[in-house]
Design a protein around this nucleic acid. Structure first.
Lengths: 227, 227
DNA sequence: TGTACATCAGTGAACGCGCGTTCACTGATGTAC
DNA sequence: TGTACATCAGTGAACGCGCGTTCACTGATGTAC
């Protein structure tokens, strides 16, 4: 039996159960961290026996890898959506922050402490470079006088020579540098904030984030609304 | 029996064994991450039975907390040593990077993914604010024309009103901002680098780090050598 | 439409493991008189 | 100096637990003729 969308009921059921397993896994990670993820606990929560999960995932590792993949994917989606609606660097920065705050453990899945032995599968690194591609596209658009306009220090020279990424993208070293600074500075604020290193300091990390963003990309006269 | 330094042989032995336990724990964390730390494995490695460790630590949690405390302490020491030998912001940045690269897992113990339930004990947060105090001292010294000299945006205003940290330190909002930017930007590069997010990009993170540092603190004519 | 067969989700028992932690104990080291 | 006692490091057995994973199976759902 095949229904309109070309998928049998069994297939639909499968993806549905897979989705619920991942949902429960995310809840568990949010509560006790990625290291506290337990297949048996997920099964119990769903009212099934432990071994049943092996119909849907080859094992614990595959489930975690899938969650990491999804996390990367959701950031890429958020970035692409922002870019598609005409967002400039400011908009991308806001999208990054919104994505991070929306689910801190998802953020840590991607940018948190790596487990020493683990190597991300190829498609994950592919998604990562897609994210950088969106950023490089946005950074190319001149949106006002950049604070570092015209600067050509040792980093620019180094990038011009040694970068092995962003293959078919413009080689303007100043743009590459702006993209990298965007990335590192915003992650600097975000990771410290989400890890709680600003608690007790009394100021709002959002303001600090906004100030860093301002330095990187002074907003245009008319900031782009969506579409 | 009491020897010259006022400590009995038993006390000396105790601290020695404690030190070895922590050393083995660090090795284990370096190999398999903090979540892979096992008391029994440490004991076996030291040629003792598992329960013996309970003479030295109340349990696994206390051992981990102690390691985190040590990690904070070693950064504070590195910072204080740099400051004492006359280092400017540039020197502090170099000290931070050296400390981080020397033992990445130690870095993650402090700045890595927090485990959701955990709350750092008071003395750890005390050390954290000592680190910030050293930074604030260094940032006060004018070491050349800062890129953001005279800037007084919304962040400066916000800090002037809302900061609840660095109690008896100068309230100059520009200095506070410089300290915060120093902190977030350098950690941005470091955390992404140590988590491996630059691998495959072909450039040297050290150059990027140096460039960010340059922006924050243009070196004086004669950079301060140690002492 | 009904029957025979194939697919596949889920179960329950079991395996082996390592974990943190407790407990009563032995034996060596140090202390007091 | 020798003897009686106290301190304390370390042992071995045991407890209870939850983990990931395998296996042979039952029973429901779907497919082919």
């Amino acid at each position: 039996m095949v229904v309109k969308d070309g998928r049998t009921p069994r297939e639909r059921y499968r993806t549905q159960v897979r989705a619920e397993i991942k949902e429960r896994a995310r809840e568990q990670i949010a509560t006790s961290g990625a290291s506290g993820l337990s297949l048996n606990a997920i099964a119990k929560q769903m009212g099934m026996s432990g071994p049943a999960l092996y119909r849907y995932f080859a094992g614990r590792d595959e489930l975690i890898t899938e969650l990491i993949r999804d996390a990367y994917g959701s950031l890429a989606d958020a970035f692409r959506a922002a870019a598609a609606s005409g967002a400039d660097l400011h908009g991308l920065g806001a999208a990054l922050r919104a994505w991070a705050l929306d689910d801190p453990q998802r953020y840590f899945l991607v940018y948190g402490t790596p487990v020493p032995g683990y190597h991300a599968p190829d498609d994950v690194t592919t998604i990562a470079s897609e994210i950088m591609a969106v950023l490089l596209d946005a950074v190319r658009i001149p949106d006002g006088p950049a604070a570092d306009a015209g600067a050509a220090g040792p980093l620019e020279a180094h990038l011009a020579e040694h970068r092995r990424w962003a293959g078919d993208h413009p080689a303007d070293p100043a743009a590459l540098r702006r993209a990298l600074s965007f990335w590192t500075r915003l992650h600097g604020v975000l990771s410290l904030e989400l890890a709680g290193h600003f608690t007790g300091m009394g100021f709002d990390p959002a303001v600090l984030y906004g100030a860093e963003l301002e330095r990187l990309a002074p907003p245009r006269a008319t900031p782009a609304p969506h579409r």
